[in-house]
Structure formats: C-alpha cells, structure tokens
Design a protein around this nucleic acid. Structure first.
Lengths: 217, 217
DNA sequence: CCATTATGTAATCACCGATTACATATGGCT
DNA sequence: AGCCATATGTAATCGGTGATTACATAATGG
C-alpha cells in the first residue's frame, strides 16, 4: 500500500546533478570504467568494471538491468564524444563550401575512429548490445546521417554535382568513409598502415578522389 | 573386453582423406558445427560445438590448442567459401572488361556478405582470433587484394582511368565495397535495408557511381 | 523520527574456456 | 602375430563471467 506523494514540496536539488547515495553516482563511474576498459583493448566485463569502481560484483545491476544495458550506456557516451568532435570539425568549414565540409567530415570521422578504435567499434557495430535498444543512440546516429544529407543538398543546390541521385551519392559517400575507417580497425591495411601520417594522407586522397568523382567537371 | 578388429589393410589410405580415429574426423565436424552455430546467430562456443558433435567438452582441445585455433580454422573455411564464390563471379566477366569485372567483384562481394553475415564478420574483422595467426588466411586475403589490383592495372593499360594513382583508386574501391557490405551487416541502412532487391539495386548504383567517377570522361 | 526506498553486499547458480589425469582405440614395428 | 607408442576421447576440476536472490544499510521526505 503505497503512501503516494502528494507533490514534491521540497525544492529538488539541481536536476543536472544526480544525487549520490552510497557511492556517488556509481552509474557514471561504471560507464567510465567500461570505456577505459575498452580503450585498453580488454573485454568489457561487468565484474571488472565493478572491481575498478571498488564495488561488489552485484552492485552494477542496481543501475543496469543487465550487461547489455551497460553496453548501451557506454555506446551512448562514446557516440556523444564522437559526435562532438565531428561537429567541431564541421564548424571549421564554411557552410557554403559543401565539398570542403564533406572533406572535413570524412577526415574527422576517420581520425576519431582511428584514435578510438574500441569505442568506434562499439558505436558502429551494433554487436555489443541489442540493436535499437537505445533511442538516444538511434536518434544521434540519424542526426549524423541527416548532416551528411544536408551537405549534399547544399552541393546540389549550388549545381556542383554531376548526378542528381543524391541518395545514391550519399550512400556511396558514407560507405567510402565508413569502409575506410573500418579497414583501419579491421587490419585491412597491413603493410603501410602503420604511419599515422600515411593514413591521414591516404584518407585525404580517397576522399578527394570521391569528391572529384561526383563533382561536375 | 572389446574384441579387436583386425581390419585395415596395410596400405596407407589416400592421404587426402584424413584418418578417423574414434569419431571420424572430429576436427572437421567441429568446424562445421561452429560455422553452423555462427550462421544461426549464436555465439561460437567450444562446448556447444562439442555438444553438437556428441563429444565431451574437452575433446575439441585434442584438435585445437585453444578456442582461437578453432576460430582460425573456422575463418579459413569461411574464407575458402567466400573466395570460391568471388572467383566464380569474376570468371563470368571477360578479362578484357575491367570495369565489368570490378562490378562483378563488388556485387558478388556484397551479396556473399549479406547472405553470410556471421561468416563474413568472422573473416573480415580479425576480432575473433589473433590477427595473422593463420598464414593461409593472410595469403588468401592478399590474393584477393591482388586480384582487385590486377583489374585496375588492366583498366589503366586500356587507358580507361582518369587518374594514374592506382593505389589510391584501389583503396577507395575496396573501402567503398567493404564499407557498403559492412553497412548492411552493422545495421546502418535501417529504413530501406529490408528488401533484398533494394539492397542489390543500391549496390549496383553505388558501384556504378564509383566506376563513373574514376572512368575517363 | 521513522518508514520507504535507493543502493550495496554476500551467497549462489549455470555456463564457459582451459588444464590435468586417466582410459581406450589405432596402426606401425619388430 | 603381437605389442606398444601414440592419437584420441572422457571425467574431474579450476577460475572467470552474467545473473538472481536474500539480506543489510544509507538517505529521503512526510
């Protein structure tokens, strides 16, 4: 028999500050521990995350119903960081120069993936948690895609494109960038893929090649 | 007390047929079970493979030093099947038509990946076993890459290319095809990615767009 | 001031990869 | 013909993992 609260008379503290009970926002600490775990190349295990948070093995399950939920939260955080960096890069290219923006987008994309391989893997693969399990992740990703769409629309508006099939160009562009990023992580660039500079230059080359391919001659 | 069977004539059997001891080539049965497991979308576990082979949990370790070795063998088998199908497709395009060959290659690549997502994942990711742990896998993959290189060289020889930077074109082409194949598996084509036909048409469109982009006008 | 609820602990379970000691079948060797 | 080294499989066991449950305690708010 629940004594229903008539209201919240007490001024609730600032919402943005989640209140610590025992540990002090164990949820966040677990997510950070998991991200660090991934960054170190280790498997993410709930137990290890708990261990690093100096908490019992069962404690995390007070904050996440199961491992997948933790992974989803981890993916959301990684996606947040990823998007932030992409947007910074995009802001440095003028909106009136769609090819420049696409270039900036592709380079930032590849660079982040290369520098945060494990996190990129978690974000992009949908293999670490049930697909569509996180609405935030889905929305974030959709916005990122819409962003590339906007770039292409602007290019079309300016009459820069050889073809009018925007969807096709968009898919091709995403496939190119995504594929190049993944080739790095998946070890498909065995010989020369060691030098950071070489990767960067090749990324530029590949993106420029693509732009030249879709640009009106 | 088991009655010994005097059978087995002295002559050593055909070498190509591995000799069954107790089970009858448990090694192969385990690999097949693992492949099937993956195809069903389940995790590959040594125990489950053993279970399906109706053998004790420790038995597989007589044939593979550890789980990774089994995974490597599984990857080798999957790669064999993959390559076989690619080569069939390539054989149906005349060697004198490099663009047609690239198109056939890309389509066969994407189609196989889509139809055998788990196996493609195992092959291409290098996340399921130590990278470079299988010389055969490495060699096979290198040959596949050399194949695409040959196609481009032929195109250049015929003066079909706009740019002379073959390496750049090759990387871009591989990134495009690999990226598109992975986008399918990784759930990056949420809306329209359900219809097999639509995927196929989009694959053709993307590949043709790429070809048009690198072809001399 | 105290009941409710949020949070954490301890104990336990089933499953997994892996190792070890032991049992048995196989086929080469003499 | 027979023996035996070895290839193969089993049983028992270990530590690690995700997950559930019963229980303990801290914090909140009426």
């Amino acid at each position: 028999m629940p004594a229903r609260q008539p209201a919240k008379p007490r001024a609730r503290r600032n919402i943005s500050e989640v209140r610590p009970y025992h540990h002090g926002d164990l949820r966040r600490v677990l997510i950070d521990a998991a991200l660090q775990l991934a960054a170190e190349g280790a498997e993410i295990s709930v137990r290890e995350a708990a261990r690093r948070a100096a908490v019992s093995p069962g404690a995390p399950f007070r904050h996440f119903p199961n491992r997948d939920a933790l992974m989803s939260a981890v993916a959301e955080e990684a996606q947040r960081r990823f998007r932030a960096e992409i947007e910074v890069a995009l802001d440095q290219a003028p909106a009136a120069d769609p090819f420049g923006r696409f270039r900036a987008f592709g380079l930032a994309y590849v660079r982040w993936a290369r520098r945060n391989p494990a996190h990129f893997e978690i974000i992009s693969t949908g293999r670490y948690f049930a697909h569509g399990s996180s609405a935030e992740l889905t929305r974030d990703n959709a916005e990122l895609i819409a962003l590339t769409e906007g770039i292409l629309i602007e290019a079309a508006k300016q009459g820069l494109l050889r073809s009018a099939d925007l969807k096709r160009i968009q898919i091709a562009g995403r496939a190119l960038v995504y594929g190049f990023a993944r080739m790095n992580l998946d070890g498909h660039l065995p010989r020369w893929g060691v030098e950071e500079d070489e990767i960067e230059r090749m990324a530029e080359g590949v993106i420029d090649l693509f732009i030249a391919g879709i640009a009106k001659p």
